[in-house]
Simulated scan of single mutants.
Amino acid sequence: MSTEKLKLSSYGGQALIEGVLMRGKYALVAAMRAPDGQIILETEELKGIYQSGFSQVPFLRGLILLWDALGLGTRYLTRSANLQSGEEEKIEGVSLYLTLAASLAIAIGLFFLTPAAVGKAIQNLTGISSFAMNLIEGILRLGGVVLYIWAIGRVPDIQRVFAYHGAEHKTINAFEAGADLKPETVKNFPLEHPRCGTSFLLTLIVLSVLVFSLVGNLPFGFLLLSRVLLIPVLAMLAYEYIRFTANHLDHPFIRWMIRPNLALQSLTTREPDLDILEVSIASFNAMLELEKKLQPRAIHPTTEPSPAGGGGGYQNPPE
């Protein structure tokens, strides 16, 4: 293992269809395995609001960076799917944001409004307290999310995506440990990473019980409206929590706190083979090189390796 590593001011990633997207503070790279076996690289310089001062404001940055990640993630997921199918259709501009809005509306309906409606119905039938209702609602929400992830994880194509997700985690864990980024070495690193989007999702659900309890007992219509309006608040709180815990992993209590988050990642990751790891490493290395060119001072050599699998390097949105 090398004792020298590079420290980026921000980086993270996302699994694609037969590919991995890695992003830093100034650039992103999507590496995708084409049907003929070649690794195709697509690069993009990050500009706009991601580089603005707003992306550094606590709590507000969570909304900004998450929305940015959703837009970029949707766009490159489409490109990776098109590469496999040979189609040339692109989702950009208005169509991209309409797709995002439709996807978010369905998710809100399934995982926020439906549990709230069921919880309210149980309260009306039994007369339980508003806190008990919120607890039931939270359990239904968590159960629905876990069941959904488990169900789609049974699909072979999604299992491949989850393997690329695992490769992305292993690559970043290896980088943070100062290891050589070679498939044979990277495969030995953990599948879990403390700043994964799965961790963010679990944190948001737990926080929803606490935040919605503060709202109190509301009529049905206002109850559903509160669930929608408070989603940005939950997202901001969850983002700051994940960011804080990932930056304090040296504390035993923090490591204990994140165990449920890491355990849930077993549903969204699979052990990647060496070919999949090769794609993830190619994406990360290309992103590193592009970051150097765009902002040389953004990367500083250091001789202090972090613990193997230490994690905590994501400063942009969770995957």
Rank of each mutant, 00 (worst) to 15 (best):
F220M: 06
V233I: 11
E240G: 04
R227F: 08
T198F: 13
S199W: 09
I242S: 02
P252K: 03
L218D: 13
I231G: 03
V215N: 03
S208L: 06
C196A: 12
T198A: 06
G216E: 05
L225F: 11
R227Q: 11
L223S: 11
I205P: 15
H193Y: 13
C196D: 07
V215R: 09
Y241G: 09
F244Q: 05
Y239E: 04
V211N: 04
H193S: 10
S208R: 00
T198R: 03
L249Y: 03
L249A: 00
Y239Q: 03
I205L: 06
S226T: 08
E192S: 15
A246I: 04
M236I: 09
S213I: 05
R227W: 07
Y239D: 00
L237I: 04
C196F: 15
H193V: 14
L237P: 09
S226E: 08
F212I: 14
Y241W: 13
L202G: 05
E192I: 10
V233Q: 01
A246M: 01
F244W: 11
L237A: 01
E240M: 06
L218F: 01
L224C: 08
H251R: 10
L224M: 06
L214E: 10
G221A: 06
L214R: 13
R227T: 04
V206M: 12
H193I: 08
L191H: 15
A238S: 14
T245N: 02
P219H: 13
F220L: 02
A238M: 06
A238K: 08
L204H: 09
L230P: 03
F220C: 14
I205H: 13
L225K: 06
M236W: 00
L234S: 09
F200P: 07
G197R: 07
H248C: 03
L225Y: 02
V228R: 06
F220Q: 05
L201I: 15
L249P: 02
H251L: 13
V211Q: 05
S199P: 09
F200V: 10
N217Q: 11
Y241L: 14
L210R: 04
L229N: 00
L237Q: 06
I231P: 01
L225Q: 12
P219K: 06
L225V: 05
L234H: 04
R227N: 08
F244T: 01
L224Q: 10
G221I: 15
E240T: 01
L201K: 14
L229C: 12
R195Y: 11
V233R: 07
F244K: 02
L191K: 07
H248V: 05
L229A: 11
H248R: 04
A246Y: 00
L210E: 09
T198V: 00
L207H: 11
S213M: 07
S213A: 11
P232N: 01
Y239H: 01
F220P: 05
A246G: 13
L202N: 08
A238Q: 12
S226L: 11
A235T: 13
L214A: 14
V228M: 09
I205E: 08
R195S: 07
T245C: 01
L225N: 02
V209H: 06
R195D: 11
T245K: 02
V228W: 01
T203K: 11
